[in-house]
């Protein structure tokens, strides 16, 4: 990154995406919410009748924060993979933007921030439903919103790294199937990580961002505040910074020729 390459102009890149989102929100808004509600019904209430309690917690209350965490991941990740790829490759939007006083770095930061915004919007919509169902506690659960922002920035940056790497829109399926889907089930989402062998737990907390988002989210919604949440938050912040720098580097390698 060269000095002066990121100014507040990235807000215009973000604003452009928001403008288009607001024109098409009916199609892009509802599916993720339905997705989450089906998970909640199938797991929380369906499977929950057999599982009943985990560590003294009702299964629906156990799984609700994990469903929010998955929504945070998906909101940003799918925006900066398929969404950004369409803008970059098919619509040539990035080419149009870098011909203005906006820099390539600002385009990338704006895209990642937009991905995070999708995570926050998702959380704003799902949270009242969970509150009404009595599955999350207040006021600590309101901290899911800043969590969605940080988690969204991280998964937005991760998605953009894959977008920088992928030769075509079809090959974007590989990271989805090989990384995102396994992470969805191995991050203490539907069963506690503690039930897995210790080495697997180390790997999960060492490498899987979703594991940290789930652990913080669960600590906030039950609530069961604990010191490890600070460690998870620190892990997320450091990883977000590093992966954002990586995304900028990879995208510049692809786009600046």
């Amino acid at each position: 990154m060269t000095p002066g390459s990121v100014s507040w102009r990235f807000r215009h890149v973000w604003g452009r995406n928001l403008h288009i989102f607001l024109r098409t929100w009916k199609v892009s808004f509802l599916p993720p919410i339905f997705d989450s509600l089906f998970f909640l019904i199938a797991l929380g209430y369906g499977l929950g009748q057999f599982v009943q309690e985990i560590g003294g917690v009702d299964y629906a209350r156990f799984v609700a924060p994990a469903i929010v965490a998955i929504g945070i991941m998906n909101g940003a990740y799918y925006e900066t993979t398929y969404g950004s790829f369409v803008r970059m490759y098919y619509q040539k939007t990035f080419d149009a933007l870098v011909a203005t006083p906006v820099t390539i770095e600002e385009v990338i930061v704006g895209e990642i921030l937009w991905g995070a915004t999708k995570s926050v919007i998702y959380t704003v919509l799902i949270l009242p439903i969970l509150i009404l169902l009595g599955l999350v506690s207040l006021p600590s659960s309101l901290l899911l919103l800043p969590l969605a922002l940080v988690g969204g920035l991280l998964f937005g940056a991760i998605g953009l790294c894959f977008t920088a790497w992928t030769p075509s829109i079809d090959t974007l399926n590989y990271p989805s199937f090989l990384i995102i889907t396994p992470m969805m089930v191995l991050s203490g989402t539907f069963f506690p990580l503690e039930s897995l062998p210790l080495p697997v737990q180390y790997v999960a907390y060492g490498l899987l961002p979703l594991a940290h988002i789930v652990s913080i989210a669960r600590g906030l919604t039950l609530p069961a505040l604990a010191p490890f949440m600070l460690a998870s938050a620190a892990w997320l912040l450091v990883a977000t910074g590093l992966v954002m720098l990586l995304a900028i580097r990879l995208m510049k390698r692809r786009l600046v020729v």
Binding site: H12, Q91, K92, T93, A96, L97, T100
Partner: peptide, 19 residues
């Protein structure tokens, strides 16, 4: 590289923000 989801007018006004 116009914005396919926007109108003619919006294509111009949204682009103006970048300047």
């Amino acid at each position: 590289n116009l914005d396919p989801d926007l109108t003619v007018y919006e294509n111009l006004t949204v682009f103006a923000r970048f300047f």
